[in-house]
Design a protein around this nucleic acid. Sequence first.
DNA 1: AGTAATGATTGAGG
DNA 2: CCTCAATCATTACT
Length: 273
Amino acid sequence: MKPALFSVLCEIKEKTVLSIRGVQEEDPPDPQIMRLDNMLLAEGVSGPEKGGGSAAAAAAAAAAGGSPTDSSIEHSDYRAKLAQIRQIYHSELEKYEQACSEFTNHVMNLLREQSRTRPISPKEIERMVAIIHRKFSSIQMQLKQSTCEAVMILRSRFLDARRKRRNFNKQATEVLNEYFYSHLSNPYPSEEAKEELAKKCGITVSQVSNWFGNKRIRYKKNIGKFQEEANLYAVKTAVDAANVSAQASQANSPATPNSGGYPAPCYTPDGRL
DNA sequence: AGTAATGATTGAGG
DNA sequence: CCTCAATCATTACT
């Protein structure tokens, strides 16, 4: 008698209460969450663990060799930060999953308990579980979204070279300045000259271009400030020229090689014209 | 901390 | 494309 009454009551309830709540049961594969998933997978955040060892190796290699090829140190830095993000993501995800299953169990037990005194069908419990899962998955989506943001920020920081600026070494600036001041009348190196300078300085051609661009504009802007430097390099090249000509033949007095374009430097010790 | 130097980026313009 | 000019972001120096 009791089971029959139970099922009847359940049926009635099904037809009244639940139908009012509307039919929003369909659960399409949300394109938004798909996108987030794909991105996280692509960045290696949600994929299989593979960071630790190789990142450490890269860091060790970078630490051991103090050579100018420090793109590896940036790379390992990037990977370390990515690993950190991944770790946070996974621990949070685990936390959410645990909380979800805990809560689900709790609710299921409660409903089962109450199904002895109230008309609660297994179907209804199932539905309740689905609702809970939806709620929790929306929280997970937030987690995924914020993780994505963190990765994007990390990426932009990594890609923006301004944030990883290193000054060129002494010798490189020496070479560049030498060229600049010995071509003051026309400080526009040709493509080949740029390539040679790049090779000599251990930097890229575009870095050479950047350097000359900056140098020209900054020299022009405040010639006085560069007097000392200009004189220094003028003397240096003059001395070099003297040495070279001394080796060849002693009869040449070296002339200062620059005049025109920008005002030539003059030898005033205190830097005023 | 505050400031100067400095390499890189952006946008205008030829 | 390249250059200039302004600007950004970091590094070096005080």
